[in-house]
């Protein structure tokens, strides 16, 4: 019996630059087949903002005091439709005034519509980027909602996978997931979601979103690997914490909360009042976020004074491969073929 292990990820919001390379890496790896045009299994949004799908934090799902909570079914438009463009007319056949733009008129929402809008007021506005993928929760609301048992959590790495042969497209899972990380494929009539790059992990290759991140933002590894960075950041230093722990699904993607430059008083002089309101961060990460930020600031000050800091050196990760725990293989060196498509073969 393989002992139960959990692959986890830590995403450092102080290093994320919102460039969406993770989003494109995932798109070109997985969601480029029929019916998946509008799917982004990895997204990056600017907080504060509506995020994607639009207003997902108000769409319910997850658990309260152990009890399942009803959720709203997100629409394709709320995820952001995949606009097509009138390239043929505008570039090759157009008369002078054929403007190249989305077919179907002016869009008013898109996957990254509120990029860089932020919150608060100048000069004390605030914003940070937050990447999201399926959290492969320890208590997955999607798995418990599916009447056909078509979703299962793999023993060897805790990855939550939909078996598309069993899925009838009921989408109770899409409603029940409090993070709204599940998409519906209108062509195959099945629900589809992030599979934590299981075929890559099985070959020792990091996930596309973590390996291709130019900001070196994502730590990847097993939660129980004590000398790995994830265990240290989550349990020892407690600077990596779950997003919306109150949803009670015990997500396995953790976030290092964002620091920010000082805000200003009336005359424009810097004061040491949090530019990012602490109550806003509490609403995202819970009460643990305050002490985490204090620790980050203290450790940075230690380094500035010339001292040592294991926490800072871990977050810096001077040797890039230290980010990825046991997954350090370059995909090009993997066998020329990755066998089964995970979705419909397991279980």
């Amino acid at each position: 019996m393989t002992d139960k292990r959990q692959v986890a990820m830590v995403i450092d919001l102080n290093k994320c630059i919102g460039c969406q390379t993770c989003t494109i890496a995932c798109k070109t790896q997985w969601t480029n087949r029929e019916g998946m045009e509008g799917m982004w299994w990895n997204t990056v949004s600017t907080s504060p903002g509506e995020g994607t799908p639009k207003g997902w934090e108000k769409m319910g799902g997850g658990f309260r005091k152990g009890k399942a909570q009803p959720g709203k079914l997100p629409k394709q438009g709320e995820f952001g439709t995949a606009w097509n463009f009138n390239v043929e007319e505008a570039l090759f056949q157009g008369d002078k005034h054929d403007t190249l733009g989305p077919i179907g008129g002016d869009p008013n929402w898109g996957t990254n519509w509120d990029e860089d809008i932020g919150g608060g007021e100048y000069p004390n506005s605030f914003q940070f980027y937050i990447p999201r993928i399926c959290n492969h929760c320890t208590k997955p609301a999607c798995m418990e909602a599916c009447p056909r048992g078509a979703i299962f959590k793999r023993e060897e790495d805790g990855i939550v996978v939909i078996n598309e042969d069993h899925c009838r497209g009921f989408r109770f899972c899409q409603e029940a997931c409090p993070y709204k990380e599940i998409y519906y494929n209108t062509v195959t009539g099945t629900s589809q979601k992030c599979i934590m790059c299981a075929p890559r992990l099985e070959e020792g290759v990091p996930t596309a979103c973590s390996r291709q991140c130019p900001g070196r933002v994502r730590f990847l590894g097993f939660l129980d690997d004590e000398d790995g960075p994830i265990h240290k950041l989550v349990y020892k230093y407690k600077v990596a914490m779950a997003l919306h722990p109150e949803y009670e699904t015990e997500p396995n993607v953790f976030y290092i909360p964002p620091l920010a430059p000082p805000s200003f008083d009336e005359e424009g002089n810097p004061i040491d009042e949090d530019r990012i309101p602490m109550d806003y961060l509490d609403s995202l990460f819970g009460p643990a976020v305050g002490p985490a930020i204090d620790l980050l600031k203290a450790e940075k000050a230690k380094k500035k004074a010339g001292g040592e800091s294991d926490l800072m050196d871990t977050l810096i990760a001077r040797n890039w491969l230290d980010l990825f725990g046991p997954f350090t293989t370059n995909p090009k060196d993997v066998a020329k073929t990755l066998e089964e498509r995970v979705q419909n073969r397991q279980g």
Partner: peptide, 28 residues
């Protein structure tokens, strides 16, 4: 598909290496 090679050497232990390089435009 294309993906960053990310095989730049670290010059000194105290300095971060250059990996992986690449951006969302190059990757598409």
């Amino acid at each position: 598909r294309e993906e960053q090679a990310a095989e730049y050497k670290q010059l000194r232990p105290e300095l971060p290496d250059m990996n992986p390089r690449g951006c969302q435009k190059g990757c598409s």
